[in-house]
């Protein structure tokens, strides 16, 4: 850590440039939303909380996020362990594969699930036979949400595992611990910050997912409409107060996520 020094003119210029850039790109848009919210007073939020469709959308989003949190939390930890600690054929391929959801457009994700479960899709004949509806229904949205949020926990946990090495696990083994005891008592506690960080990112991504759930879910009001697709539909129908209100709610949640991320980082650094 450099001590607090007076910056020379060149450094001041660079600092000013960075501040201006971050202000323009990040702070200004955020401020626009805040100003708009203040201008309209509680009206924006009222538009949401008095609208059953909006509340339904919010609820659906929370349910989807909850499923992603549990599903990808569990699988993410397991997959990180497999990726970092196991040696097997195809590990390199897997390493790229697990990152792909970060680079694939949400629209493509939705499309891919449509091609599996939608009209004319691979599994359509069986699904019709069994009477299960996946596309334009809840199950499809669950799959799309799981897909887009898959890498977050995995990457954060894998990073910590790699840093950690396996000295402590070896020590546990020589002291007689079973694999399960080693995992629960030694590995998992050491992962807690990485896991927490990954879970917050998962939650944020799940709450904010738009393109994929729009394509696979169809944004049918009261059925497959999420918080984000509600905003989209409201904008299309020029219901701007409702759209801005919902955007404000989601932005507030994001700020909370941001603060939790910062809190986790501080806790982690304190224990280093």
């Amino acid at each position: 850590m450099p001590e607090r020094k007076r910056l020379n003119p060149g450094q001041k210029l660079l600092l000013a440039l960075v501040l201006a850039y971050l202000g323009l790109i990040l702070a200004l848009p955020l401020a626009a939303l805040a100003v708009r919210a203040l201008e309209s007073g509680p009206g924006m939020l009222l538009a949401i909380f008095s609208d059953p469709a909006a509340l339904e959308g919010l609820k659906l989003t929370l349910v989807l996020a909850g499923i992603a949190l549990v599903g990808n939390g569990l699988v993410g930890v397991a997959a990180a362990l497999v990726l970092v600690r196991h040696r097997f054929f195809g590990r390199g391929l897997l390493d790229t594969l697990v990152d792909l959801p970060l680079a694939v457009s949400p629209v493509m994700t939705g499309l891919a699930f449509l091609l599996l479960f939608g009209r004319g899709g691979w599994f359509e004949p069986w699904l019709t036979l069994a009477g299960i509806k996946v596309s334009f229904a809840f199950p499809g949205m669950v799959l799309a949400t799981l897909f887009v949020t898959f890498p977050f926990t995995l990457r954060e946990v894998a990073y910590v595992l790699l840093e950690l090495g396996n000295d402590e696990e070896e020590a546990a083994v020589t002291l007689g611990a079973s694999p399960w005891q080693t995992f629960l008592l030694v590995t998992l506690p050491n992962l807690r910050f990485g896991l927490g960080y990954g879970l917050v990112l998962t939650l944020a991504r799940a709450l904010g997912e738009f393109g994929a759930v729009l394509v696979i879910g169809g944004a049918i009001s009261g059925q497959t409409q999420t918080a984000t697709t509600f905003i989209y539909n409201a904008l299309e129908e020029r219901q701007t107060p409702a759209a801005y209100g919902m955007a404000l709610i989601l932005a507030t949640a994001s700020v909370l996520f941001l603060l939790s991320l910062e809190w986790i980082k501080r806790r982690r650094d304190k224990e280093k």
């Binding site: 702070a27 626009a32 939303l33 990112l201 984000t228 989209y232 955007a247």
Partner: peptide, 20 residues
């Protein structure tokens, strides 16, 4: 802390903010 905001905020909301 603010630098991480784009990871936490829905992209659709980003669009809304830019329009605002």
């Amino acid at each position: 802390t603010l630098v991480d905001l784009p990871f936490a905020i829905p992209t659709l909301v980003t669009g809304v903010m830019l329009v605002l």
